[in-house]
Amino acid sequence: MNRLAVYCGSASPSDPRYVDNAREVGRTLAERGIGVVYGGGRLGLMGAIADSALAAGGEVIGIIPEALVAAEVAHKGLTELHVVGTMHQRKQAFTDLSDGFVTLPGGTGTMDELWEALSWAQIGYHAKPVGLLNLDGYYDGLIQFWETMARVGFVRPQHQGLLIVANTLGELLDKMAAFQPATTIGQIGAKDL
């Protein structure tokens, strides 16, 4: 994996563990020679990842919609900053420029990015690993929900392994490196849908 899209919040929670973890992720990716593709912001977890990766000599590519540049949240010190018109274009650029996706704690925007990456993997728009870093149980409820969707039958057996979960970045990167693409919906016969 040469580059990973990193999905995370633009907020800085009061609990310092979240920002500290984001810094560690940025630094570790840079030290491993893995470029960061992210939302292009200078605030919150996004800014922490970018700054720490840059400080460690890493490549950091930001993708930011015009509306957020105008709000003065764009990070101006990146390796590259791509300004796009819409959030959809932003997510397409994440997919085009990365070899996989890592999701850190975040809010609704982070969830939108994660679910779209999973949905696109099911359909076959990409065959890249989708990782979820479950810092201190932040995503326990989401993981349980994923398992419920699978148990009920809304996530097919072929797709249950699309969400790659780990509690540490090292473990997550190892699992992502071993990822084997799933059979896509388009490859499944109509009788099996």
Results as ranks from 00 to 15, higher is better:
Lys91Asp: 01
Gln92Tyr: 08
Gly170Ser: 13
Phe145Ile: 09
Glu147Gly: 07
Ala121Tyr: 03
Leu133Arg: 06
Glu116Gly: 02
Gly161Lys: 06
Phe179Pro: 00
Ala166Met: 11
Thr148Pro: 04
Lys128Ile: 00
Phe145Gln: 13
Tyr138Thr: 14
Thr86Lys: 11
His159Gln: 09
Leu169Trp: 12
Val130Ala: 02
Trp146Ile: 10
Gly189Tyr: 03
His82Cys: 01
Pro181Asn: 00
Met87Ser: 02
Leu78Gly: 13
Leu169Phe: 15
Gln180Phe: 03
Asn134Glu: 08
Gly186Asn: 14
Lys76Arg: 15
Ile123Lys: 02
Gly109Ala: 09
Leu142Lys: 09
Gly109Ile: 13
Ile164Ala: 03
Arg156Lys: 15
Val130Pro: 03
Lys91Trp: 05
Met176Ser: 02
Val152Ser: 05
Leu162Arg: 05
Glu80Ala: 04
Leu172Asn: 13
Val165Tyr: 10
Lys175Asp: 10
Leu81Ala: 12
Ile185Leu: 10
Phe101Lys: 00
Ala190Met: 06
Gln92His: 08
Ala150Tyr: 12
Glu147Ile: 10
His82Met: 04
Gln180Asn: 00
Gly131Trp: 07
Trp115Met: 08
Val84Ser: 05
His126Thr: 00
Val155Asn: 09
Ile185Arg: 10
Lys191Cys: 09
Gly77Ser: 05
Val155Ala: 10
Arg156Leu: 14
Leu97Tyr: 08
Ala127Thr: 08
Gly106Ile: 02
Asn167Thr: 11
Leu104Phe: 07
Met149His: 12
Phe179Gln: 01
Gly100Ile: 01
Asp112Glu: 15
Gly170His: 12
Leu135Ile: 15
Gln92Arg: 04
Trp146Pro: 05
Trp146Gly: 08
Gly189Val: 10
Asp99Ser: 03
Gln160Pro: 01
Gly131Ser: 07
Arg90Thr: 01
Asp140Tyr: 15
Ile164Tyr: 03
Glu80Lys: 02
Glu171Ala: 14
Asn167Arg: 14
Trp146Arg: 03
Leu97Cys: 01
Asp136Ser: 13
Ala166Trp: 14
Gly186Ala: 11
Glu171Met: 10
Leu118Asn: 03
Lys191Gly: 05
Val130Tyr: 02
Leu162Ala: 03
Leu114Asn: 01
Trp146Cys: 09
Gly170Ile: 11
Gly124Ala: 01
Leu104Ala: 07
Phe94Ser: 01
Arg90Phe: 04
Leu142Val: 12
Gly137Arg: 15
Lys191Val: 14
Leu97Arg: 01
Ala121Thr: 06
Pro181Lys: 08
Val152His: 12
Tyr138Ile: 12
Gln160Asn: 07
Met87Thr: 06
Trp115Thr: 13
Ala178Tyr: 09
